[in-house]
Simulated assay, not measured.
Amino acid sequence: MGSTTKNSKRVAPRKEVSPIHVSYLTSLDDFAKIAKNCEIVEASSSGLLLLIKRDDLIPMALRKNLNLDCLVGDRVFMHLEDMNLEVSGVITRTQLLGKKGFYVAVDYSDEAPEYWRECLMDLLPTPGELE
């Protein structure tokens, strides 16, 4: 098949998780907060999928936009409040969900060793596991 590129295909299987509260998503370039009170709704050992409500976007310019593609490629870090853990990565894609808000995908595979990422996957609760 030849060499693979970062965007060629997903290698790690996705896991639907009980929503994990992320207290903030912050840019690593200028330490400006991008969003607050978002949730991780899906995870893999290479990335996290965040659900961000429009009202939780901090910069007014982002709140007024119908797309967040300007964030793609930005290095960010987030605080997972329930686990008292900070994870950093790169925003790889965004998607408008209408009134629900936005999906923002963060790839953290370059930021953490594979065994750490696999352990994090094992620790993230699946839907219904915490009830």
Rank of each mutant, 00 (worst) to 15 (best):
C38V: 04
I40N: 01
V41T: 06
E42H: 00
E42S: 08
A43H: 01
A43R: 02
S44H: 03
S45W: 00
S46M: 00
L48G: 00
L48I: 04
L50D: 02
I52T: 09
K53G: 10
D55C: 10
D56T: 10
L57V: 03
I58N: 08
A61S: 13
A61C: 06
R63V: 00
R63I: 04
R63M: 07
K64R: 07
K64Y: 00
K64A: 09
L66N: 15
N67Y: 04
L68C: 02
D69Q: 07
D69C: 01
L71S: 06
L71H: 07
V72E: 09
G73C: 09
D74I: 09
R75A: 10
H79Q: 10
H79I: 03
E81M: 12
D82L: 08
N84P: 04
E86F: 10
V87E: 02
S88N: 13
V90W: 10
I91V: 15
T92Q: 14
T92D: 11
T94N: 03
L96C: 14
L97I: 08
G98T: 07
K99M: 15
F102G: 01
V104F: 06
A105F: 12
A105L: 13
Y108I: 05
Y108M: 09
Y108S: 06
S109A: 13
S109Q: 11
E111V: 09
E111Q: 14
